[in-house]
Each structure stands twice: as structure tokens, then as C-alpha cells.
Design a protein around this nucleic acid. Structure first.
Lengths: 117, 117
DNA sequence: GTAACATTCACCCATTTAGGTTAATGTCGA
DNA sequence: TCGACATTAACCTAAATGGGTGAATGTTAC
């Protein structure tokens, strides 16, 4: 799946903060790294993981690397989550309905003195 | 964040398949593991990661461990994604509007011979 | 009681990640 | 040209992951 890279990229608070920063405008690597206490190098590695997922793109201009937020993978993942949520909802509802039906049959066969909880 | 565990748990196709299986009804560990070619032990480890994220719960009955799908963490994550998507949308729209405004000012100052693309 | 079954535990291995430090590379500015 | 700056590269360590095997534990069934 292509979802893996996106999910892994999002599964880290530092990276989520980087994305939040980029949502308010493009920025160079150093600017993105400034708020963090970890080394610039570590931030650079986080950025690479975000790039691998396609969530961040890079435009090099001289010694400056400008980073941009790319929403496409995020939107795809959101879509997948909504679909999965619907799928689960339908399945679980169907199961519950089936269980109710079984209970009703059992209740009809046995003398309905005490209903099964 | 609590999102981390959920995202990590979802970032693997084997685990996503396990969740899909459980969406169609509770099952024992062995039943869940049956379709996979990897060892039962590996599947057991995947299940532990899903449990850590709260996506799967376990009810032990004798030697059988029955697993259930739990939607709460998934729904929370979906909510976070929708909120983040909206946040990005608003930010990026605002940025674009600001850029247009700047362009308009520049166009008004300079003789509007050739508009900046 | 004992054999078969369900599951985990305790290890082993290779890979990835997150962090670090110290070069190396390339670019800007005076 | 030369120093300062921006960024990555190369290496190190510790921890987590995904896979494996074989033993241990507890339960069912005969």
C-alpha cells in the first residue's frame, strides 16, 4: 500500500508539527528546524520521511531549500479512513442485527419466561 | 500524542487486514492468523500492537482468546484528520488570497503592461 | 493421566528510526 | 579570495519492528 508511508510519516509529533508549520507558508529547512531542540540534522531526517510520503516538496534555490506542504497524500488517507469507517459501521451493524434475530428465534422456541439478556 | 500508537498500528498492511477480518466478527487468534503465511507468533505480535493502540480488545475464555474490533481510536484519528484537513485548507486559502492581494498592489504601482503570472 | 491444542514467552537476526557529532559540499557577501 | 552560512553526508548508539524457532503454560478431550 501507499498508505504506509503516509501513516508512518504522520505517526510522529515532530513531523506533525513540521507539517503544521508548513501549512502557514513555505519555509527553509533552518526555519522549520528553529523551534525544535533537536539538532538540525535530525529535523532534516524527519523532512526526508515527509518527502518520502509526498507530504512535503522541496525547491532548491542556491543554498536555500524551500519546503512546501503537499496535501494530496493526506487527502487520500483521509478518504481511506472515511471509507474504512463506513465499512466497519455497516459490518458491525449487520452483525448486531443478526445477533438480535438469533435472540428472537431463541426466544420464540423457548417458553419466553425469562429473556436472554 | 495518543495518535502515534493508532497511526503506527495502521501503518502495516497485515494489521489492516486483521482489522478488516475483525470487522466481520470476533475471532480467536488462530482464526485471525490463518490467512497469513507468516508464523502464528508474528501475527500474535501484530495483535499486540493493535491492542496497544486500543483498536483490538481481547476476551480470554479457557484456551481461546477472542479478539474484538474497537472503533474508538480509529474514530478519534478520523476526527483529527478531518480537523487537520480543514485547518490546512483555511491556511492555504488565506495564503493564496494574501498573495493575490500583493500581486494586485504591485500591478497598481507598476504600469500594468505585463501581469506577473 | 496424557496427548493435543491455543497462545504466549524467550530468544535470535536484519532493518529502520530517532537521536547525536563531526565532516563535506555548495553558495552568498564583503 | 575567504569567511560565514545552509544543508546534507557519513558515521555512531539505542530502541523498536518484523520475521523466525523452540520451549513453556494453560486448557480441553479422551
Amino acid at each position: 500500500m501507499d498508505l504506509d508511508d503516509t501513516l508512518i510519516a504522520l505517526a510522529d509529533d515532530t513531523r506533525r508539527q513540521i507539517l503544521k508549520r508548513l501549512a502557514s507558508g513555505d519555509a527553509r529547512v533552518t526555519e522549520v528546524a528553529a523551534p525544535f531542540e533537536i539538532s538540525l540534522n535530525s529535523v532534516s531526517k524527519h523532512i526526508r520521511i515527509l518527502e518520502r510520503a509526498g507530504l512535503v516538496s522541496r525547491r532548491v534555490s542556491g543554498r536555500d531549500h524551500f519546503l512546501s506542504l503537499e496535501r494530496a497524500p493526506f487527502d487520500e488517507l483521509t478518504q481511506w479512513m472515511l471509507e474504512t469507517r463506513d465499512f466497519w459501521t455497516r459490518r458491525l451493524d449487520a452483525l448486531e442485527a443478526a445477533l438480535r434475530a438469533e435472540d428472537a428465534i431463541a426466544a420464540a422456541k423457548n417458553p419466553p419466561k425469562r429473556r436472554k439478556k
